[in-house]
């Protein structure tokens, strides 16, 4: 076939037409894409507009401070400082962990501050979730009830608040996100320094915790974070010179099942290795078998996790507590 014949053949016509259509369409789409491309900033603005449906909000995006962004209970994804009329307010995109089936809830939280101190949450909007099959049972009023139920220890989704939704653990993850917002705003924007930030095993230990040292005996007054649905717990732990627990007493309101204190008399004489072993590597609250194998009550797993975290913190940091107290560093 000569070149001339080829150019006259149907095959050439087919290829030419198809190619030119593809080309025209491609160019057209490229042009439109350049015109209609939605930038990341625009997407962020849209997401923010959904949180504040009836008003124009101006904001600046902040870089998330990785030091405070993630704990076992939450992860801060994005942080914005609101400006204009909403001066002093912060908008955070947070993932609350430890929901139903170890899933998560993603939400937007509007945090308020006053005189450089955390002053509660204005609202929380749930935008997504993982494995939370019953999250539809949670209404706006339930979320508002959790926000209103804030006390000095943070937000709790259950027990004292008496909120009954049928999706306790999903609401727990939401409360975790709220507490995350509180912690993050306090440490990043209000400059509250957690004195235990560089201590080991400080998961679930709040900065309100105090301790005293006398004759080589450290007495901690530990206030744990809430691990919804378990509320924050205050515990007095005495650690002797052999770095094991001499006494372990829960001090806060003991109307809940976790307060069966006799179980925790078993804690006496145990050291950091024991508690680290029970909690396991990831501290996962689903680690039930580990708890049972070590004679720890099951049925209040999340409270147990808090108690174990406190015990681990107290024993593992014995040396540091003694040293810092000698320097006069303790409060």
């Amino acid at each position: 076939m000569t070149a001339k014949e080829f150019f006259k053949s149907t095959a050439f016509k087919c290829i030419a037409v198809l190619l030119s259509i593809v080309l025209i369409c491609g160019i057209l789409l490229t042009l439109c894409n350049a015109l209609l491309y939605v930038t990341d900033d625009e997407r962020t603005a849209r997401a923010v507009a959904k949180v504040f449906p009836d008003e124009e909000v101006t904001f600046e995006e902040d870089e998330v401070d990785e030091n405070y962004a993630e704990t076992a209970n939450y992860r801060v994804e994005q942080a914005f400082t609101l400006t204009g009329e909403r001066e002093g307010q912060y908008l955070l995109s947070i993932i609350g962990k430890n929901g139903y089936n170890s899933g998560t809830v993603t939400c937007w939280v509007v945090a308020l501050t006053e005189d450089n101190a955390f002053a509660g949450l204005e609202k929380l909007v749930v935008t997504g979730n993982e494995k939370q099959s019953f999250i539809n049972k949670i209404g706006d009023s339930d979320i508002q009830a959790v926000i209103d139920g804030q006390n000095e220890d943070g937000f709790t989704a259950y027990s004292s608040s008496g909120i009954s939704t049928g999706a306790t653990f999903s609401l727990g993850a939401i409360a975790n996100a709220m507490n995350g917002a509180k912690d993050y705003v306090e440490s990043v924007y209000c400059g509250v320094v957690n004195p235990y930030a560089d201590w080991t095993a400080n998961t679930n230990i709040t900065s309100a915790t105090t301790y005293t040292v006398e004759n080589g005996v450290v007495t901690y007054n530990i206030i744990t974070a809430a691990n919804s649905p378990a509320p924050s717990i205050t515990i007095e732990i005495v650690v002797g010179a052999d770095k094991t627990i001499t006494s372990f007493t829960t001090k806060s309101d003991t109307t809940h099942s976790w307060s069966t204190e006799n179980v925790y008399t078993d804690f006496a004489g145990k050291g950091a290795d024991f508690f680290a072993g029970v909690i396991g590597e990831n501290g996962d609250i689903s680690n039930n078998s580990n708890y049972a194998a070590n004679g720890i009550a099951i049925g209040a797993t999340r409270s147990n996790y808090l108690l174990l975290s406190a015990a681990l913190f107290a024993t593992a940091n014995y040396d540091r507590a003694v040293a810092q107290y000698a320097e006069g560093g303790a409060e």
């Binding site: 593809v22 369409c25 491609g26 789409l29 490229t30 894409n33």
Partner: peptide, 8 residues
């Protein structure tokens, strides 16, 4: 950067 042509 031509992810927008995915359908075609």
């Amino acid at each position: 950067n031509f992810a927008f042509l995915e359908i075609i």
